[in-house]
Simulated scan of single mutants.
Amino acid sequence: MKDYTYMVSRQLKWMFYILAIFVSGWGFTDYQTIFAGLILGTGISTFNLWLLQVKINRIGQGVVEQDEKKRTLGMLTRFATAALAAVVALQYPEIFNMIAVMIGLMTPYLVIIIDYFFTQTELTTRKRGE
């Protein structure tokens, strides 16, 4: 469980770093609509990532405690927040770039994949004793 909490905090930390880069890009470049879309999409997807990790943790605790109650990961909630980001971007196209919002919504998957590869290379080098 310790590894899981470390993974969760590491992934959320990277998401906040990416958000900080996007906010800096919004503030210091002429591409405000693109960076505003990236901020909106990445902000919503950071919330979705956090929500998913909280629900996974609750399900894991329920399995440990032999809780027989059916639990879900809340896919409908995460879809609704992504749809909300899309509706906001469609409602205000002069502020948010729709393609950038979609790229921002996909950002946590890239973070998860990169985190997985870093973790695997760390584990393989640790097993060899280097």
Rank of each mutant, 00 (worst) to 15 (best):
T42N: 11
I18P: 04
M102G: 08
Q91P: 00
Y92L: 15
I99Y: 03
A89W: 07
T42M: 07
K55T: 04
L49R: 03
M15Q: 11
A83R: 13
T5W: 11
T119Q: 02
A100K: 00
A20Y: 09
A100P: 03
P93V: 04
L19V: 13
F117C: 05
G27I: 04
Y109V: 06
F118A: 08
I39H: 10
A100S: 09
M75W: 10
K2G: 09
T5L: 08
G62F: 13
N48R: 07
D3L: 14
L49H: 06
V64L: 12
A100T: 05
G27D: 06
A85R: 04
I113M: 09
E68T: 07
L105D: 08
I34Y: 09
Q120R: 10
M98E: 14
K55H: 11
E68R: 05
G41E: 05
I113S: 10
I59G: 04
R58H: 10
G25Q: 03
L40V: 10
V8A: 12
F79M: 15
K70C: 00
M106F: 11
Y109W: 06
T121R: 15
G129R: 12
Q91C: 00
M75H: 03
A83C: 14
L52N: 06
E122M: 01
M75P: 00
L76M: 09
T107K: 01
T33G: 02
G74N: 04
L38Y: 09
F35H: 06
T33L: 01
F79K: 01
A86Y: 09
F118H: 05
G74V: 07
L90Y: 15
W50L: 04
R10D: 15
K127N: 07
G60M: 13
A20H: 14
W50V: 05
K69H: 09
M15A: 07
I18R: 06
L40I: 05
Q53M: 14
T81K: 00
V101Y: 01
F47K: 02
N48M: 03
D115T: 13
M102K: 00
F16Q: 15
W14D: 10
G41T: 06
A20P: 02
A20T: 15
F16T: 15
M7T: 02
I39D: 06
E94D: 08
F79T: 11
V64H: 07
I112M: 12
L76S: 07
L38I: 11
T107A: 10
Q53K: 14
V87A: 12
T72C: 00
V88G: 01
R10Q: 12
Y4D: 08
R126F: 06
F47V: 07
L40Y: 06
I56V: 15
K13N: 11
F28S: 04
P93F: 05
I18S: 08
M1E: 10
I59K: 11
V64C: 02
